[in-house]
Nucleic acid binder design. Structure first.
Length: 614
RNA sequence: GGUCCCGUAGCUCAGCUGGAUAGAGCACAAGUUUUCUAAACUUGCGGCCAUUGGUUCGAAUCCAAUCGGGAUCACCA
């Protein structure tokens, strides 16, 4: 149902006929025709003037004429300078529309994009269990979820996984602070979300630590020594040792506090409407990887220094030497990543790609990880992909947990929901909603605003988060797109059109009986304002495919905005439900309905719900 | 210092596998509703696409250098 490949071969044939030029259809590039010119697609003829030995205009005209004669897709052409603008026949657009509209489910469903789908894993979120989620985590979570949904949409098998960083000295900090100063406080007793309570003690530790250091410095000890020898530091080291030894009391405390955090995270994940197929815990994976290090040593890929530490030399690929195992035989950060990656490819048979959604500050780490596996000759080494994204900055500067300049995820969600509530109430369209329905809708709209705001930006760019603007509900925003969907639904409810009625009853007769067929026939070759909408809808499968191949929800986000815009333009100029003109009415309802379906699906890929009313 | 990423309108961003007069939204100014949801639509204002050089018929897009911003180069995770 695409014209590009057919047109390209026709052009290739034409070039061959005219100038005995052999060009493969794949090499031919077609651009969308600029708005100011007549036509749908444009062929730039400059590259062919050498072969034609004629002016660009002449060349364009010759190609255009032959195409008109030989390719029924092309209904008209014009040449401006070296640009051959081709009009695709209305018949094509109409056939496309009738087909897509009549088999809407098939049009929306892109699972057959690839004849042999892949098997991929997306790791995202990956939080620490010592503090609540903040804005930076949200970019990660929303990106990861959306990428996974997009990959699923084009038919890949996808494993969504989360690797929880639940152990280590930073986790012990909140444990120690709670033990010393917590007086048995629990989420229940304090009416605090578990992750926030634990986060509070993490901050508390840092405060005490600073106090002790200041005290020691005051007594004439150097800052460096003070930071090493503060009593609380000794305590924390003891605690870590106890944890590693499996000391019962410490383990119980650890389990209890982590449990609080997980309860808190679950609430946040639920609000964000994201999920995971499998959760890995670092406490279970941090000892993995040593075997791989040994293997590397025996293969000669790694080497041992005199002190017993094990290294890899990556200077040949432009990286440095990197330690893989400490002199005392304990793991470093990358050791466990070696283990988990390996584990995953063993666990999931046929896994081809492992996509890590992790901030760009880890780029070096993932380069090293990939190189190590290459050196070890793992066939899947090239399947490791670091989906790196930029930091989220605030207008006031960088976010720093310790300085309290973070935007807390739960607070932000609450704030945005409230904003959505205020706006919705002010518009007063939904006074018949009961309070539960209304609350649900405010959240739907709030999340639409937040998710769209974050996902429309190219992941690799660092983004500026302005709390005031992200809450904006007009213009290029999630609610704008959600609104377009809701408006279409509303109109269609009034018009009484049941989408795909003909299809569900499964016969052409049904289509004829409700007038769809007739309506479509009447509009054959009579496309005008609606054509722009149809043309935008036509690009939907290619857009999602592009987004999947580039792991970029931003592609979908920017596209769905275009869909909404083009439809709103159409809507403004045309009456959809018109009792006096049933055929036109029915035709336009189909167009509106198809638009709504595309919007809904694109939003779904971004993790955004398209409401029926708003 | 080495490596990587970014620099487009006052602000937030598209466009970057080279193509025509560089697009949106916000903000600002003006207009559109007895009609299907105005969270909409229309119009205006706003640009040496960081700078310089190169490649090319053609550069925001590719290459190089420079300037500015960020990240990273731990026996931390």
């Amino acid at each position: 149902m695409t014209f590009e490949s057919e047109l390209k071969s026709a052009i290739a044939d034409t070039l061959h006929n005219l100038y005995t030029l052999s060009v493969s259809p794949d090499e031919i590039k077609l651009d969308e025709t600029k708005k100011d010119f007549e036509g749908d697609v444009t062929l730039v003829v400059f590259p062919y003037t050498k072969a034609s030995k004629k002016s660009p205009e002449q060349t364009g005209n010759e190609i255009g004429e032959l195409l008109i004669a030989n390719c029924k897709l092309v209904s008209a052409f014009n040449v401006v300078k070296g640009f051959l603008n081709l009009s695709i026949s209305d018949t094509f657009w109409k056939d496309f529309f009738v087909n897509a509209s009549g088999n809407c489910k098939d049009f929306i469903n892109l699972k057959k994009t690839y004849s042999t789908p892949g098997h991929l894993m997306v790791e995202y979120s990956s939080p620490n269990t010592n503090k609540p989620l903040h804005l930076g985590h949200m970019r990660n979570i929303l990106l990861g979820y959306s990428v996974a949904e997009i990959l699923l949409a084009v038919g890949h098998r996808v494993e969504k996984v989360n690797l929880v960083n639940d152990r280590g000295i930073h986790i012990c900090k909140s444990m120690l602070a709670w033990k010393k100063y917590g007086h048995g406080e629990t989420p229940k007793s304090s009416h605090t979300k578990g992750d926030h309570l634990v986060g509070k003690y993490y901050v508390e530790y840092d405060k005490k630590f600073k106090e002790e250091v200041a005290h020691l410095v005051h007594n004439g000890i150097s800052k460096e020594d003070a930071e090493k020898n503060a009593p609380i530091v000794k305590e924390i080291q003891e605690m870590l040792l106890k944890w590693e030894a499996g000391d019962k009391e410490t383990m119980d405390l650890w389990k209890m506090m982590n449990g609080w955090v997980y309860e808190g995270f679950d609430i946040s994940y639920k609000k964000l409407a994201v999920d995971f197929d499998k959760i890995y815990y670092e406490s279970q994976t941090y000892l993995l990887g040593k075997k791989i290090v040994e293997e590397g040593v025996s293969k000669g890929a790694f080497f041992k220094k005199d002190d017993g530490s094990i290294w890899i030399d990556l200077t040949d690929v432009g990286l440095d030497q990197k330690v893989l195992l400490r002199a005392d035989g304990t793991s470093v950060y990358i050791t466990q990543d070696l283990g988990t990656a390996s584990l995953r490819f063993d666990e999931f048979d046929g896994l081809q790609q492992l996509i890590y959604v992790v901030g760009n500050e880890q780029e070096y780490h993932f380069k090293v990880l990939k190189e190590i596996f290459k050196k070890l000759g793992r066939p899947w080494a090239d399947g490791l992909f670091h989906l790196s994204y930029g930091m989220v900055d605030l207008p006031s500067g960088k976010m720093k947990s310790r300085e309290g300049t973070v935007v807390d995820a739960d607070d932000l969600i609450k704030e945005i929901d409230e904003e959505a509530e205020m706006t919705t109430k002010a518009l007063g369209k939904l006074d018949d909603f009961d309070s539960e329905e209304a609350k649900q809708l405010y959240h739907t709209i709030g999340m639409g605003a937040l998710k769209y705001f974050i996902l429309k930006v190219d992941p690799k760019k660092k983004m500026l988060f302005n709390p005031a603007e992200s809450i904006d509900l007009n213009g290029n925003t999630g609610p704008f797109i959600q609104y377009t969907h809701a408006r279409i639904r509303s109109v269609i409810r009034k018009g009484g059109f049941v989408f795909g009625a003909a299809v569900s009853s499964g016969s052409k007769q049904a289509a004829a009986s409700n007038g769809q067929q007739e309506a479509n026939d009447q509009h054959a070759g009579n496309l005008t304002a609606d054509k722009n909408v149809i043309k935008v809808l036509y690009r939907y499968p290619a857009i999602v495919k592009e987004a999947a191949e580039n792991f970029s929800p931003a592609v979908v986000a920017n596209y769905v905005y275009e869909v909404a815009k083009s439809f709103n333009h159409f809507y403004h100029d045309n009456v959809i439900v018109d009792e006096a003109d049933k055929n036109t009415s029915l035709y336009r309802m189909q167009l509106a309905s198809l638009t709504a379906e595309v919007i809904k699906e694109c939003l779904r890929l971004l993790g955004i719900v398209a409401p029926e009313r708003m």
